[in-house]
Nucleic acid binder design. Sequence first.
DNA 1: TCGCAGTCGATTGTCGACAATCGACTGGCG
DNA 2: CGCCAGTCGATTGTCGACAATCGACTGCGA
Lengths: 234, 234
Amino acid sequence: MEKPPTSFHQIGNKSLRERILTTLREAILNGELRPGHTLVETELASQLGVSRAPLREAIQILNTEGLLDTVPYHGTTVKALTKRDIEELYSLRIVLETFAIRRIIAQLPEVDTAPLRTLFEQMLIAADQDDITRVNVLDREFHDTLIAMSGHKLLVSTWSSVAMRVRQVMSLRNLRNSDIKQIAHNHIPLIEAIERGDEPTATMLIAQHVASAGDLLAEDWQDDPSTATEEDQP
Amino acid sequence: MEKPPTSFHQIGNKSLRERILTTLREAILNGELRPGHTLVETELASQLGVSRAPLREAIQILNTEGLLDTVPYHGTTVKALTKRDIEELYSLRIVLETFAIRRIIAQLPEVDTAPLRTLFEQMLIAADQDDITRVNVLDREFHDTLIAMSGHKLLVSTWSSVAMRVRQVMSLRNLRNSDIKQIAHNHIPLIEAIERGDEPTATMLIAQHVASAGDLLAEDWQDDPSTATEEDQP
DNA sequence: TCGCAGTCGATTGTCGACAATCGACTGGCG
DNA sequence: CGCCAGTCGATTGTCGACAATCGACTGCGA
């Protein structure tokens, strides 16, 4: 329980709040902390070996990010994820990614599409090796890169909050290997359309690509009834 | 220093954190706290008559919302607003509002467009009376309503963070009355296009409408050099 | 037995004090 | 005179304790 005054083995030596934040966020995004799970501050604080002050600050941030849901004097829970949430998530994803692609194409000879190709190639290799985890990581990087290439900082930050929840959904769902490989292969026509500056095709492909992934994830999703986001008032 | 147990001018008597949050956010959005302004926790806390704990929680939230910028052990400042930020803000606005309109039209006979007309009429009256403040408020409500009518909760929450910064920009800029009246009148063809389900026209009009407002605001904007968001590394 | 008011325990909200960190100042040394 | 190490002050970061609030339990009375 006592921590050495200078423990040298922690590399990213940021503030406690930041480390708590990263820890909790990662746990939520990994599905380790499932939607509906209740967090008790006292418990969690002693569990993490910190006081409640920085923990609470981290919780406020996660509330704002939409990952936690605190009701005053009652408790904090991991935010529920309904089927509707997933549908909204993926429909907004399409909008944001389409925007990114339009911007990339608009500044085309300037931006370098090589990173996309590299990621795609690695993705194929991982798919061949049935390394599903790695495919998912690379897919995330692919879409993150796409957004970043737009050169639109506000879009990047908006994306990151959407992408977080996408990641959370994916952690709670196990797609079939065949589906994931299929999705992986879908990337190449998209890359080519972007490189050739073919906006109609590129935007059509991204919409199709994202929507089909979203349908796969939303399919058969059952909202946890005990953690519904809305209640009818009588 | 002592606050009356029930000071009647604060309506929503929620937690201290919430009240501090609202107070600070409003001050930033009003332009009362200008970009670059430094907040000192101890000062601000005693000024508000609260301790630093809830104040810090509010600050973390405002950081996450992108209104404040805290650098560790150094200080918290109101986030700078560069010309580029404004351009990004308005380009994303177009994307989000276009999406909202597409969704509204898609479910058309179901949604009621009367609120838009009502707001528009009030806007015209206020414009006639040269009540610029009220025109701005109504304009905000108009666009908020448009987003809300999409029935897309995630879009609403994404919008709210964009809309906050838009509000901040507007508070720092004084548009000419003639420009504002012009903008007010632009709303009616948009409403009609939406009601008639004419998606191409409606999306074209919203893009035009928002872009021209954005150009007006970004025009002649000078980034405060002392609060630049990025530094070149040598 | 049923309804209800009071109490109790658990949990969140707030506070004041202390620790850690960083920049600026300062004083000595080459 | 210039430079560097040490110190100091101001500010943020963290802690433990106390206060406020809410739900559930309990026991009294009709």
